[in-house]
Nucleic acid binder design. Structure first.
Lengths: 142, 142
DNA sequence: TTTACACCCTCAAGCCACTAGAGGTTCAAC
DNA sequence: GTTGAACCTCTAGTGGCTTGAGGGTGTAAA
């Protein structure tokens, strides 16, 4: 049986995050020692590893909840899991497109900056006047 | 003089967001009508446009605060503004790299999914076993 | 057996950058 | 004078954690 600390180390999670996942029902309530400390088994380790891996791939906790649910029902068709992953891919591709536009614009701003006084700073000038932008960047709400 | 609503429309900002910027000191307290409604001038319009544009380029409100401060002092050297922009570019490039790795992995997962039962679903399988990943994706805390 | 100390506990609040909603007031046009 | 859109303040919620206060537990060495 693992303490919360060793589970945290094994999965690269913070202790508080594990308690948070328990609180929101993503991780089950584990057994406790007489003194009230949490003790985890291998199932918990697998589940947490799954969650962390999905988080690394950018899935939201809600999406992960669905994926875990599907994972618990091996007889169900896998269309749903596929759909969740496709949705995630789409989001990633949208964010990529936006970030690429951003990169272009930032590079241009910096490249044009002469290093003089802020009065002549291209960085500030471009920020002041959107019409100087070439790309259709829009990162807000991304 | 502009009402908060027309300022919002002109800058593509929500009314509540403008009040929020005022609350955190990013926008100055505007004049008021006798009835207590906010009224804005052209300076406010410029400042808010600057803020929104910087937000679109992904700058944090703290970075924007610094940029606005620099913008208010045209005699100071522009090294600082340049540094802020470079920092931002670096962040954008890091996020791009991570997202590209993510996209690769997601595509592979989806591509390999046969569409059968969740028991055989590659999407779920990959999530279960990180060692099946080819890329060094890590989007958490990005 | 005592003591040290790393680890664990709960609960509350904070982070960012807003967003939403309740409940009430003002402004401008008709 | 009346309508109704737009305004006001204040509070709370979002996601995904993180931090901190103030205390209890577990284990190994002296």
């Amino acid at each position: 049986m693992l303490t919360i600390g060793s589970l945290a180390r094994k999965t690269g999670t913070k202790v508080q995050t594990i308690r948070y996942y328990e609180q929101i029902g993503l991780m089950p309530e584990p057994g406790r020692t007489e003194g009230g400390q949490r003790r985890y088994g291998d199932d918990d380790l697998d589940r947490l590893a799954f969650i962390r891996h999905a988080r690394q791939l950018g899935f939201s906790l809600e999406a992960i909840r669905e994926l875990l649910d599907l994972s618990d029902h091996p007889d169900r068709p896998c269309l749903e899991a596929d759909a969740i992953a496709r949705r995630q891919l789409k989001q990633v591709e949208q964010r990529l497109a936006r970030l690429e536009a951003l990169r272009t614009e930032l590079k241009r701003m910096i490249h044009e900056c002469s290093g003089g006084q802020t009065a002549d700073c291209r960085v500030l000038e471009v920020l002041r006047d959107h019409s100087e932008c070439l790309t259709d960047h829009d990162e807000i709400g991304a």
